[in-house]
Design a protein around this nucleic acid. Structure first.
Lengths: 114, 114
DNA sequence: CTGTCATTTCCATAATATTGGAAATATGGA
DNA sequence: TCCATATTTCCAATATTATGGAAATGACAG
């Protein structure tokens, strides 16, 4: 018996199991300087999220570039968008992120601590 | 107090803490069909590893292409190479993978189960 | 309506990644 | 030494991603 981390049994309350195409999309979505930075800001911001404009300012990149990156992350299912009056507010999809980490620990981590 | 998974304190026996450039390299290394497949085979194989030729056969891709991908993963620090007579044997670096998962849970997972 | 703010879409350009055949390199055996 | 095996490096073609300005869209106030 191994039982490395989790106090619960094996595959617990994982909302969703990903196929490798989805995993690749999610990994690619995070494997970029501006996107990783944006995602971390969104994680920090929590469910309130951050508007596109704020993000662009905080990251110091042009709005059209940011828009491109946000789109990538949405298509990968890592973030979510909602409109609030004139602004579009983005927030991290924590369940999706948890599913990604779940995939990695289960498929790519055999034996190592997590 | 939150204490989501680990029975130990905060940042436990993590061999190494990654900067975001390293994380991006590792994510990009896994964000590709053939590389993710290769890495999963290496994880399954454990410390014994698999030779380049075997991997190419199992993945059904040309040797020069595989060589390119193995190089990417080595540069990203996710796999390791050793020579055994005529063959080059590759194996997964589990500590590196654990560090990647550690980064993701700590920086991109706030609040979600892991 | 008209103007303004917030953001996206369009699009051309530039940069980076992927592919695979052919030639080069390393290793061990006859 | 010479040959066969295992794998890499080279390189050119192709494909995919990233950039950012300008024009288009959506929302709201006067």
């Amino acid at each position: 018996m191994i039982a490395p981390c989790s106090p619960v049994a094996a595959s617990p309350a994982e909302g969703r199991v990903l196929g490798s195409a989805e995993v690749i999309a999610a990994l690619a979505a995070l494997a970029q300087e501006h996107r990783l930075a944006a995602f971390r800001l969104l994680v920090e911001a929590g469910p309130d999220g951050v508007s596109a404009g704020d993000l662009a300012d905080r990251l110091s990149i042009p709005r059209s570039s940011l828009s491109f990156h946000l789109n990538q992350m949405m298509q990968a299912g890592l973030i979510v968008q909602r409109r609030e009056s004139r602004s579009l507010i983005y927030s991290a999809d924590f369940a999706a992120m948890a599913a990604l980490v779940g995939f990695l620990t289960e498929n790519c981590c055999r034996g190592a601590g997590c």
